[in-house]
Amino acid sequence: MRIYQCDSCNKVISDPYTVKMKEFRIGIEIGIPLASKKKIKIHLCDDCYKGLHLIGELVPKNPKKEERENNG
Rank of each mutant, 00 (worst) to 15 (best):
I3F: 00
Q5R: 13
Q5T: 14
C6V: 02
C6D: 03
C6N: 01
D7I: 02
D7S: 08
S8T: 03
K11I: 04
K11A: 08
I13E: 03
S14I: 05
S14W: 04
D15F: 05
D15K: 10
V19E: 01
M21E: 12
M21L: 07
E23L: 11
F24I: 07
R25P: 01
R25W: 06
I26P: 00
G27Y: 09
G27D: 14
I28M: 09
I28F: 14
E29C: 01
E29I: 03
I30F: 06
I30L: 09
I30T: 08
G31V: 09
P33R: 14
P33T: 10
L34P: 04
L34Y: 15
L34H: 15
L34G: 06
A35S: 12
A35W: 07
S36Y: 03
K37A: 10
K38N: 11
K39E: 15
I40G: 02
K41A: 06
L44F: 02
L44Y: 04
D46F: 00
D47Y: 00
C48K: 02
C48S: 05
Y49A: 03
G51T: 00
L52M: 15
H53F: 13
L54Q: 15
L54P: 00
G56C: 11
E57T: 08
E57Y: 09
V59T: 12
V59S: 09
V59Y: 15
V59P: 09
P60S: 10
K61N: 11
N62H: 15
N62G: 06
N62R: 15
K64S: 13
E66D: 15
E67C: 11
N70S: 09
N70W: 14
N71W: 09
N71Y: 13
